[in-house]
Write a protein that binds this DNA or RNA. Structure first.
Length: 730
RNA sequence: GCGCGCAUAGCUCAGCUGGUUAGAGCGUUGCAUUCACAUUGCAAAGGCCCCUGGUUCGAAUCCAGGUGCGCGCACCA
C-alpha cells in the first residue's frame, strides 16, 4: 500500500486483474472448498441457479440487479465456509429470440417465411452463440463469482432430451393432451401464445347493432359475421325465451341466412341486446358455447386465416385484413339496412401480443396443452406448508391467487427456434383396414416418443410435429436440468437449491412453473427460498425503455464508475419486491464511497511503521469500544443478509464505514498516531487495522473489487488467506 | 369485476413484531479545508408521517372505513 501512489481507487486498473485472480484460483467452484484447510472445510453446501439471460442481446440493468443480489449471497455464504455453487447459464429464449431475429432480418430486407427451417435455425444459432459470449464477459465485469465450468445452455443436447422426457411423462400420466381450441394467435408472428403472453389493453371501439331477422345483436367485430353458426340468448331472459330452439331467417351480407337460436347461461342479458351471435371459430367464448351445444349447431367456420385476412366464404371481402374488412362490412350493412345503430364509444379490453402489440386473432388450432390443476395443487401445498418461503412474504398471495385460478397451458409454438416437441404424426390420413385375422386395426394418429416410431400397420412414416415448446416449458425445469437430473452428482448434492432470486414480473411465467415442474419431475421442491426483486426505474420512477431514452446501461456505468459502485447503487435504498430506483448520481455517490474505502486503507498504511511489530500493544477502553462496535455491525449485517434484507445490510455497513469509522474513529486517532508515544501509536494503528480488515470482509460481498484490491495490498501477517473472497466471515 | 400493493422532508425512499427530540441519500443554505479522500468535514433549514374513527398508558407503526395512485389477474359478445 505504501508504494501505491494513486489517491483514488482506479477500478479500470483493478477489475480485470482481480477477476482473473479469482477465476484462476478455482474458488468459484464448490470443489475448491474441500481442498482449502481451515475455513472452508464445512460440509454444508449452498446453491443458486442463475436465471439464464436470454441469448439475444446484451445485459441490461435488470440483469445487473440479479447479478448483484445473487453474488452478494454467494460471496457471503462462501466466506461463511459453505461449498457454494452459483451455476450460470443462458436461455435460447425461443419466441423472444425469434422476434429479435425477425427484426434483424427485417432490417436486412429479409423474411423468415422465405427461409428454410435449417437455414433459419443455423443463423439464429450463431446469433445466440455470439450474444452468449458477450453476456458471459459482461457477467464477469460485474464481478459474478459463478462457476463457469458448469455453465449450461438450454439447447444443450442433454437438456433437450430431459425436457422432452418430461413432456412424454406428462403425456403418459394423462397430463398432456392435444386438443382443438381457439388459441391466442398473433397474425404478425404467426404463432399461438400462452394466456400469460397475452396483454390486455383498453380500447374504445364502436359497438355495432346488427339485425338478425327479428333479433338484434351488438358486436365490436361485425367482420366475423361470416363465421356465425347460431345465435344464443340466456335461457332465463323473458324477452327471448320463446325463440330458443327455433330457427330464424336473417338477411346476410352475401344473401339470406338461417340461424338456430340456443339458450346458454354464459349470455349476459344485460349486455347489448342480450343476444349473442355464435362465431365458434373466432371467439373463445363462442367456441365454448358450441362445445356445449355440439349436436344442435354447426361447428367452427373459419373465415380468418393465420395472417389475419379474411378467407373462405366471404365473397368480395376475401383477402382483406380484419380492420379493412370491418369498415367495408359496416358500409355494406348500412346499405342493406342490416345495421340498426352504432354505439360509437364502447370501452373494452382487447387481447394483444405482448411483444408486438398487435391485436391477437382467436383461431381454432390443435395444440398441446398441459393440464395444470393437479400440478398447481401440489405447488400451492408446498408453499402453504412453508417448504418454500417467499421474500417478500406478500408475494406468495399473488402466487396462490394465480395457481388457484390456473388454466391449462398451451405449450405449442409455431416457430422454429426452440425444442421440437417429441410427437410424431402419421404421414397420410389414418386408414382403418382389415388385418389378416379380420380384425379392424387403426394406425395411431400420433405417437409421443423420443425417437421416430414406425407404424405397426402400414408403410406410412411418422413425421415429427413441426412445433416447438414454449420456452418457459424448458426454463420451468431449469433447476434440476442444470444440475444433471436424474443421475448427476450435482443434483444429489445441490438439489433442492437454496434460493431462487429473480424479478417479480416472472413469478407466474417462471417461478410458479419451476415449482410445479420441479415437483412433478423430481418429487422435490426446486428451491427453498424465493426472493423477488422489482423492476428497475430511473430517478423519476419511470420504467426504463429505449424509446424514452432513459436506459442506463449497466456495463457503461460500470466502466465509468466501477462495478462496485453500480452494485452498491442497486442494493442500498431498494427494498425487497419493490421497484428499484437507480440514477447516475446515485452510482457516482457510491463511486465516491469506493474512493473513501481506498483512502481509509491508504491512510492506515501511511502510518504503518516497522517498529510497531516489536511492540506489545495495549488496547485502551476506547479501542475496545471501537472493536465491539464493528463486531456489532458485522452481526447486524449477517442477520440482514440471512433475512434477505440487502438494503439494510448495505446501508448499515456503508454508514458505519463512512460516518463512524472514517469520520469519527480515524479522526480521533490522528493525534495518537502521530504522537510521541510509540506504544499508543502502535495500539491505535493495530485497532484501525483490525477494523479495516473486518470492514473489508463485511463489504466484500457488496463491493468485491475494491475490497479485494485493498486486501491484496495488506501485509500478509494480517491475512488468513490469499484472497479476501475466501476469508473467514467471522 | 376479482386480487395485491403503495401514500413519511423539494426528489427517491428507509423505518422489523407499537415506546424517549421521525431517519438516509440526493438537492438547498452557511462555514471550514487541500491535513488519507478528482474532494472531504462540520453545521443548518425543511415533515398535520393522506383523511376520519377505533384499540392502547402510548400509533408513522395495529384494526376499520374513506380518498388518491400503482400493479397483477379476468373468454362479457
Amino acid at each position: 500500500m505504501t508504494n501505491e501512489p494513486h489517491k483514488t481507487y482506479d477500478h479500470k486498473a483493478s477489475e480485470e486483474k482481480i477477476y482473473k485472480l479469482w477465476e484462476d484460483s478455482g474458488y468459484f467452484a464448490p470443489e475448491a472448498h474441500q481442498s482449502q484447510a481451515g475455513n472452508l472445510e464445512s460440509k454444508k453446501s449452498y446453491c443458486i441457479i442463475m436465471p439464464p439471460p436470454n441469448a439475444n442481446g446484451s445485459l441490461h440493468m435488470g440483469h445487473a440487479v440479479f447479478v448483484t443480489l445473487q453474488d452478494i449471497l454467494i460471496r457471503f455464504e462462501r466466506m461463511r465456509g459453505k461449498k457454494t455453487l452459483w451455476l450460470p447459464g443462458a436461455d435460447h429464449a425461443g419466441f423472444e429470440t425469434q422476434v429479435v431475429f425477425d427484426k434483424k432480418l427485417d432490417k436486412e430486407g429479409r423474411n423468415r417465411f422465405a427461409m428454410t427451417r435449417e437455414e433459419l435455425w443455423q443463423e439464429i444459432w450463431e446469433f445466440t452463440q455470439t450474444n452468449k459470449k458477450v453476456m458471459e464477459n459482461q457477467l464477469r465485469k460485474l464481478g459474478a463469482s459463478c462457476d463457469w465450468s458448469r455453465e449450461k445452455f438450454t439447447l444443450d443436447p442433454k437438456i433437450i432430451e430431459e425436457v422432452q422426457k418430461t413432456f412424454i411423462k406428462l403425456y403418459e400420466d394423462g397430463l398432456v393432451y392435444r386438443d382443438l381450441r381457439v388459441v391466442n394467435w398473433c397474425p404478425k408472428h404467426r404463432t399461438a401464445l400462452s394466456d400469460l403472453e397475452v396483454k390486455y389493453v383498453e380500447k374504445t371501439d364502436p359497438l355495432y347493432y346488427m339485425k338478425y331477422g327479428p333479433l338484434t345483436v351488438a358486436t365490436v367485430r361485425p367482420e366475423t359475421k361470416f363465421g356465425d353458426t347460431a345465435l344464443a340468448v340466456n335461457p332465463k331472459d323473458p324477452r327471448y325465451k320463446k325463440y330458443i330452439g327455433q330457427e330464424i331467417e336473417a338477411l346476410g351480407i352475401l344473401g339470406p341466412l338461417k340461424f338456430k337460436i340456443i339458450g346458454d347461461e354464459a349470455v349476459d342479458p344485460t349486455f347489448g341486446t342480450g343476444v349473442v351471435k355464435v362465431t365458434p371459430a373466432h371467439d373463445t367464448a363462442d367456441f365454448d358455447i358450441w362445445q356445449r351445444h355440439k349436436n344442435e349447431i354447426p361447428g367452427p367456420k373459419i373465415i380468418i386465416d393465420e395472417s389475419g385476412r379474411l378467407t373462405g366464404e366471404v365473397g368480395e371481402f376475401k383477402g382483406l385484413k380484419v380492420a379493412e374488412a370491418r369498415t367495408k362490412v359496416v358500409e355494406t350493412m348500412r346499405q342493406k339496412g342490416i345495421l340498426e345503430k352504432v354505439d360509437p364509444a364502447y370501452v373494452h379490453q382487447i387481447a394483444t401480443c405482448y411483444k408486438c402489440g398487435n391485436t391477437l386473432e382467436p383461431l381454432p388450432k390443435p395444440q398441446w396443452f398441459i393440464k395444470m390443476q393437479p400440478l398447481a395443487k401440489k405447488a400451492i401445498e408446498v408453499v402453504k406448508k412453508g417448504k418454500i418461503k417467499f421474500y417478500p412474504d406478500r408475494t406468495k398471495k399473488v402466487y396462490f391467487h394465480w395457481l388457484e385460478n390456473i388454466r391449462d397451458w398451451n405449450i405449442s409454438r409455431q416457430i422454429i427456434w426452440g425444442m421440437r416437441i417429441p410427437a410424431w404424426f402419421h404421414e397420410s390420413k389414418c386408414v382403418s383396414k382389415q388385418s389378416h385375422e379380420d380384425e379392424v386395426v387403426k394406425c395411431k394418429e400420433f405417437v409421443v416418443a423420443l425417437e421416430q416410431p414406425k407404424c405397426e400397420f402400414c408403410d406410412a412414416e411418422y413425421i415429427q410435429d413441426p412445433d416447438v415448446f414454449d420456452t418457459w416449458f424448458s426454463s420451468g425445469q431449469w433447476p434440476f436440468l442444470t444440475l444433471g437430473y436424474p443421475d448427476g452428482s450435482d443434483f444429489k448434492k445441490f438439489y433442492p437449491t437454496d434460493v431462487m432470486e429473480t424479478g417479480y414480473d416472472i413469478l407466474f411465467f417462471w417461478v410458479a412453473r419451476m415449482i410445479m415442474l420441479g415437483l412433478y419431475r423430481t418429487g422435490k421442491i426446486p428451491f427453498k427460498n424465493v426472493y423477488l426483486h422489482g423492476l428497475v426505474r430511473d430517478k423519476d420512477r419511470q420504467k426504463m425503455s429505449k424509446s424514452k431514452g432513459n436506459v442506463v446501461d449497466p456495463l457503461g456505468v460500470a466502466d465509468q464508475y466501477g462495478a462496485d459502485a453500480v452494485r452498491m447503487a442497486l442494493v442500498v435504498g431498494n427494498t425487497p419486491g419493490n421497484d428499484i430506483v437507480i440514477s447516475e448520481d446515485k452510482i457516482r455517490g457510491y463511486r465516491n464511497f469506493a474512493t473513501k474505502i481506498w483512502n481509509v486503507a491508504r491512510f492506515i498504511a501511511m502510518y504503518d511503521k516497522p517498529e510497531f511489530r516489536n511492540l506489545k500493544t495495549k488496547p485502551t477502553s476506547a479501542d475496545k469500544k471501537y472493536l465491539a462496535e464493528v463486531e456489532k455491525i458485522h452481526k447486524q449485517v449477517t442477520k440482514h443478509l440471512e433475512d434477505f434484507e440487502f438494503h439494510l445490510a448495505g446501508e448499515k455497513i456503508y454508514h458505519y464505514f463512512w460516518h463512524t469509522f472514517a469520520d469519527k474513529i480515524i479522526e480521533e486517532s490522528k493525534p495518537r498516531l502521530s504522537g510521541d508515544n510509540l506504544v499508543e501509536a502502535a495500539t491505535t494503528h493495530q485497532t484501525l487495522q483490525t477494523i479495516l480488515l473486518k470492514s473489508l470482509i463485511v463489504l466484500h460481498p457488496f463491493m468485491p473489487y475494491v475490497t479485494e484490491e485493498i486486501y491484496q495490498s495488506l501485509d500478509d501477517t494480517m491475512k488468513n488467506y490469499k484472497l479476501l473472497m475466501i476469508e473467514k466471515w467471522s
